[in-house]
Design a protein around this nucleic acid. Structure first.
Lengths: 182, 182
DNA sequence: AAATCAAGTAGTAATTATTATCATGTAGTT
DNA sequence: AACTACATGATAATAATTACTACTTGATTT
């Protein structure tokens, strides 16, 4: 029995308060203007316990801003990911990826090109076995997603890393930068 | 420095051989007929190192079966997931899910309703820190995806678990059943 | 062997999620 | 208050996936 536990709502609420308070200033620091739409999105995102989809955020924000557009929500969420104000639950959201290997194992995902390889991590297997449940969740299994850069993407990003203030142009570059080292 | 390592191609090739040999029989056991399309898909899936998308599988199979339809590939892949002949790299493929919590943490995902909660697993954090690289992959971070059933979905699946041979009707039920306990 | 039947597939239409476009609006600055 | 660059709303376009339908095929029955 390890120390794994669901983050409680007490922790969450203080985190949310802190983030909301700092939001406007962090926007200004980055030269982003603070619009009601962005405020609405960050609030919905931080408030919603069930890591929401763009659609769900849209519905929530619309409660207070009847005119907001779904496209705007998509745009803002993507921007938040780029600047580190949000993240995607998984970097492999865009197209379904299939795996013929059905035994328990783990994955390395290159955040640049999205290539995926199988990994064997016995410690992670042991860890998972030691977690029979998490609150009301009955654990079935799990998989460690290791975020990484493959050799090719590493050499690419070195070439561009010298230019300061260069905004990421491609999807994959953006994805690279949006990932926080865990 | 732990024992994490990429699965080598030697291991893979023996696994692939074994799976391919058993495939036809496993189909028959399940009452699925063994068609050239299904054989093509399982072969492409097992052979391709980079956990492919439906499109990629389609392209590969088409090399040998010029007439195969993309829709068929989608259907077969989904079916394979249902019967345990394949899995998706992540159960959260369908729509992008966002998370306002940008500090390193992990997730429980209910395979029934796809709800997601944050989890704190210090052991997983330590484990990740101990893996500076995996072969040619430079590790940036990672996240443990714990697959589970939430309370609601658990009570649902209990109700239906008595009926024998009842095929899953809904997407979410299918997803539940397709997950292998890791 | 012909008739019957069910499962599987190709081709295409429909749906859904996301992104691009562009005219208009507005936050931040002077 | 006026200005300007960035944001937004509305909608069109694209991409991924699923639904639909008619056609095959292979098995079973007669």
């Amino acid at each position: 029995m390890g120390t794994a536990k669901l983050l409680d709502s007490q922790w969450r609420s203080s985190y949310v308060t802190q983030r909301l308070k700092a939001f406007a200033q962090r926007c200004r620091e980055r030269g982003m203007s603070v619009t009601p739409q962005r405020l609405g999105v960050i609030k919905a995102l931080l408030t919603c316990e069930n890591h929401p989809s763009a659609e769900e955020v849209f519905v929530r924000v619309r409660r207070h801003q009847k005119h907001i557009s779904l496209a705007t929500v998509h745009r803002i969420l993507e921007q938040f990911c780029r600047v580190g104000e949000a993240r995607k639950v998984t970097p492999l959201h865009d197209t379904a990826r299939y795996d013929g290997h059905v035994e328990p194992h783990h994955h390395v995902v290159c955040v640049g090109c999205r290539c995926v390889r199988d990994v064997e991590i016995p410690e992670a297997d042991r860890l998972l076995k030691s977690i029979p449940n998490l609150g009301e969740f009955a654990v079935l299994g799990g998989s460690l997603e290791v975020y990484a850069l493959c050799a090719k993407c590493r050499s690419k990003s070195q070439k561009t890393s010298n230019r300061r203030n260069s905004r990421p142009k491609t999807k994959s570059e953006a994805a690279c930068l949006s990932v926080q080292a865990t």
